[in-house]
Amino acid sequence: MKLFGFFSRGQSAPAARERLQVLLAHERASTGDIDLVNKLRDEILKAISKHMQVDDEKVSIKMERGAQVSTLAVDIEIPFDAGKKAA
């Protein structure tokens, strides 16, 4: 992990600056309720629930907001008979 490099010594202020820049860029973007990652998260869940009964405990969502790219990982356990139960 990159963070550990900072622990060794040297200055910590550059790390602080970089973390704040990324965080604030995301927070400012989301004040108008247009945080794309959040929107995708909600719409993906909505789409899934159309096809199967979504058991929230079986859905794990992970995000990592980056400077250039963010990642969204949605991990869903789909039971064998999920399709039948829907409709």
């Binding site: 992970k62 990592e64 907001r65």
Partner: peptide, 12 residues
């Protein structure tokens, strides 16, 4: 979240 370094990973 910031103090713990998890600020980029907050989902809910």
């Amino acid at each position: 979240d910031l103090v713990m370094g998890a600020e980029r990973r907050v989902v809910y």
